[in-house]
Simulated assay, not measured.
Amino acid sequence: MSDAAASDAGDGDVQGVRASARGWLTLQLAALGFVGLCGALKSGGSGSTAPRGVEIVAGVLVLLALFVAILAVYLVGRTAWPHSGTPDDPARAARRLRTGLVLTFVTVLLTALAATSAWWPAPESEAGEGAATAPAVAVTTSAGTWCGELTRGSGALALSVRGRTVDIPVTDVVAVTPVGDCGSS
């Protein structure tokens, strides 16, 4: 094989790696968007039940995932669109592409690990029987007023009044007013 033929074969390999890198770049940008979305949800969320240490670790994992994603996009982008005038070795370009793809999957893994803190179980004092009760409401209908705590019902407004459930059709409700307690009702 002549030097010109070997050079053409090398250029073909590099062009194939570049084309592959351009295709993978779309997936990488989606992963970077996923990391950004998870970071925004993490910082905008409130009422987390996870311990403070777990929250800190999750925040660090999201930031680490962001930096890894940026590095991965750089590697794949540099493979897809190399610096002008710089000859590119096909083996080196393929290695950069492979490294960028591995880092992309590491990014998704780190983000998933960070997101697990959102599913931290609630402390027993919040989830158990000792949890705070629902606020009392006074429901006024054309037939009178009921006072109790809102409960789950089907097809009607369900109210727990002195230990029993009263279903009030929504069409009969005139007003619902929050009250401190139903002691005098």
Rank of each mutant, 00 (worst) to 15 (best):
D3T: 12
A4L: 12
A4C: 08
A5K: 01
G10E: 15
D11C: 03
D13I: 09
Q15E: 12
G16P: 05
G16W: 12
V17Q: 02
R18V: 14
R18Y: 08
A19P: 00
A19M: 03
W24P: 00
L27M: 12
L29I: 07
A31Q: 04
G33R: 11
G39K: 06
G39R: 11
G39L: 07
K42D: 12
S43F: 10
S43R: 13
G44M: 09
G45F: 00
S46K: 12
G47Y: 06
T49P: 00
A50H: 06
P51F: 04
G53S: 05
A58P: 04
A58W: 01
V60S: 14
L61R: 07
V62R: 09
L63I: 06
F67P: 02
V68Q: 03
A69F: 00
A69W: 04
A72S: 08
A72G: 09
V73K: 06
Y74W: 14
Y74H: 05
L75M: 12
R78W: 13
G85A: 06
T86P: 04
P87I: 02
P90Q: 02
R92Y: 12
T99S: 05
L101G: 02
L101R: 06
V106N: 04
T107K: 00
L113D: 12
L113H: 11
A114I: 02
A114N: 11
A115H: 03
A118L: 08
W120E: 03
W120I: 02
W120S: 08
E124N: 13
E124H: 15
S125M: 09
E126Y: 15
A127C: 00
A131P: 10
T133Y: 02
P135M: 01
A138D: 03
V139P: 05
T141M: 00
T141Y: 02
A143I: 03
A143S: 11
G144F: 08
G144P: 01
G148E: 13
E149M: 10
E149V: 08
E149K: 02
L150S: 01
L150K: 12
G153H: 14
G153Y: 01
G153M: 11
L157N: 08
L157Y: 09
L157D: 04
L157Q: 10
V161M: 07
I168F: 08
P169D: 14
V170N: 15
V170G: 10
V170R: 15
V174C: 03
A175C: 04
A175W: 06
A175N: 07
V176A: 01
V176K: 10
D181N: 12
C182H: 03
S185F: 15
